[in-house]
Structures are given as structure tokens and as C-alpha cells.
């Protein structure tokens, strides 16, 4: 039976995890009374689902429909005048939703706030571009990488990938090496589909050595003159030294059917 490979998350995974391994959590602190962050929490009021301080950043969990309102409050009443970063995290495999975050900066107080919300798959988020112009590019990047639609964005279009690209690369379902479309993209675009056979598939294996290629790599034990034609003969290992080189002659070794 073929080994089952999950399709919803094709990223690299740890091949071994100790049975008794308990993952600790980064300590979360409560918001102290009277601090700057306490005022922020107070200003947002009932829209807040959860708030805590994680590594000197105040994290505010909100509902996705309140994002514009909350960030407007943060900007106008709490002095968070810069949106440093905005993006998403893919949790589609586990919870069928994205986690969106906005990283805001208060220049006067030198404090940072992260607004976090969970957005279900297929839903759109309200653009904060009217508040922060920096969200213009950031939201386009989020759309490009995750396919999350943004309402009322002035120019929602792919930004990093080409306009005719298929798929959203940062989704967990998208493999690192790209899909079929990605692997032939430049050939299809420049030469046309009919040239796929001539150019050949991409080599994704960095350790691959081509036995017919006598120009670029030499194979230890099977050296031939530079540029010699490959005649399809079976490989004959040349024994240079019995001690220094491994004997590549397959006849001399025995392959076991089963592991002992």
C-alpha cells in the first residue's frame, strides 16, 4: 500500500517527535493596570475578545468584522500612527480559517500592538487602506500569497507573482517546489507549450548526476573523455585503486532482500 501523504499541509514536518514531548508556550502576561497598554484595552472596550502581552507586544484578539473600527480607534485615540506590517497565517488544515494580524506602532510611546483576528475561508476582510496607506501594498501581498480578498481596496491585484499566475504560494497546500503550472511557467510563456519536450522538466534534485552528461560532471570511477558521446553501454567501473576508491562494480556486492 502506498504511504498516505496528507494533502492539506504539504510543508516539511518533523520526521520524529518524542512521545512525551510537551510543547511549552511563550509566557503571556496580563495587562497591568495604569500602564499605557491598559488605556489601549480600555479604549477598545467591548470589541475585544482577548488581550495579553506576549514578548513586550500587546496582542488584541478581535472579530474580523470589527477590524476597521478597532484600528481606527487605535490610530485616532491611542496614537498608533504607523502600520508596520500586515499579513496572514494559514490555519485552513486545522481550523478552516486564516489568522490575520496587523502590527501597529506608536512612535511617541515606542509601543507596539498586534491586532489579531480569525477569518473563515472564503470571507473577505475590510481594507484599512483609508487609515494607513502602507496597507495598500501589504494587503495586495496578502491577497497574492493567500488569496484573501480585501473589500474596498483601491487596486487589489497580484503584486509579487505575475498576473497570470495560478495558485497562492503561501497556502499550506501549495508545495515548496511549485505545482505543474509553476514548473512550466517560463517555458510556456517564452517558447510555448510545444517546447516543453525540447526543454525538458526542471531538475529539482541538487545531487542529481546525469549519466549521459559528459561535459559538466565527472563520476568517480566512470570517467570518460570530455564531451564523449554516451553510447548507452552498461557501466563498467574503472578500478583505479583497490584501497582508495570504493568498488562500484555491482556484481561484487550482494543486495539483501530483507533487512537483517
Amino acid at each position: 500500500m502506498r504511504k498516505y501523504v496528507p494533502k492539506d499541509n504539504v510543508q516539511a514536518k518533523a520526521y520524529y517527535t518524542d512521545r512525551f514531548h510537551v510543547v511549552p508556550r511563550v509566557p503571556r502576561e496580563k495587562v497591568e493596570e495604569g500602564s499605557h497598554f491598559a488605556e489601549v484595552v480600555k479604549a477598545i472596550g467591548t470589541d475585544l475578545k482577548e488581550s495579553y502581552i506576549e514578548i513586550s507586544t500587546l496582542v488584541l484578539h478581535i472579530n474580523p468584522e470589527d477590524n476597521f473600527k478597532v484600528i481606527k480607534t487605535l490610530k485616532e485615540r491611542c496614537g498608533y500612527t504607523q502600520c508596520s506590517e500586515q499579513s496572514a497565517v494559514d490555519y485552513l488544515a486545522k481550523e478552516n480559517e486564516f489568522e490575520l494580524f496587523w502590527q501597529l506602532l506608536n512612535v511617541k510611546e515606542a509601543k507596539r500592538v498586534r491586532v489579531v483576528c480569525r477569518l473563515e475561508k472564503g470571507l473577505a476582510i475590510e481594507s484599512i487602506e483609508p487609515l494607513f496607506k502602507s496597507a495598500n501594498f501589504a494587503e495586495r501581498e496578502m491577497f497574492d500569497m493567500f488569496g484573501i480578498k480585501v473589500n474596498n481596496h483601491p487596486f487589489l491585484k497580484r503584486i509579487l507573482m505575475p498576473d497570470d499566475w495560478e495558485g497562492h504560494p503561501l497556502l499550506k497546500t501549495y508545495p515548496l517546489f511549485g505545482d505543474e503550472f509553476a514548473s512550466w511557467y517560463e517555458v510556456d510563456k517564452i517558447f510555448g507549450k510545444e517546447y516543453r519536450d525540447i526543454i525538458g522538466p526542471e531538475n529539482r534534485d541538487p545531487a542529481k548526476i546525469d549519466i549521459e552528461d559528459t561535459k559538466r560532471f565527472s563520476r568517480v570511477g566512470y570517467e570518460v573523455p570530455f564531451g564523449a558521446e554516451y553510447n548507452g553501454e552498461e557501466e563498467q567501473g574503472i578500478e583505479y585503486s583497490e584501497t582508495a576508491l570504493v568498488n562500484y562494480n555491482k556484481k561484487a556486492s550482494k543486495t539483501l532482500d530483507e533487512r537483517r
Partner: peptide
């Protein structure tokens, strides 16, 4: 030459392809 360390969806794996 070969795509180098960027063995990803977005890089051409060697300019000799084009």
C-alpha cells in the same frame, strides 16, 4: 546556474533553460 539555494516555486532552475 542552477537555481542555487532557491529551490522554490518562483525561481528558474538555471538560466540555460531559456
Amino acid at each position: 546556474n542552477t537555481g542555487g539555494m532557491f529551490n522554490t516555486y518562483a525561481t528558474v532552475q538555471g538560466v540555460d533553460r531559456i
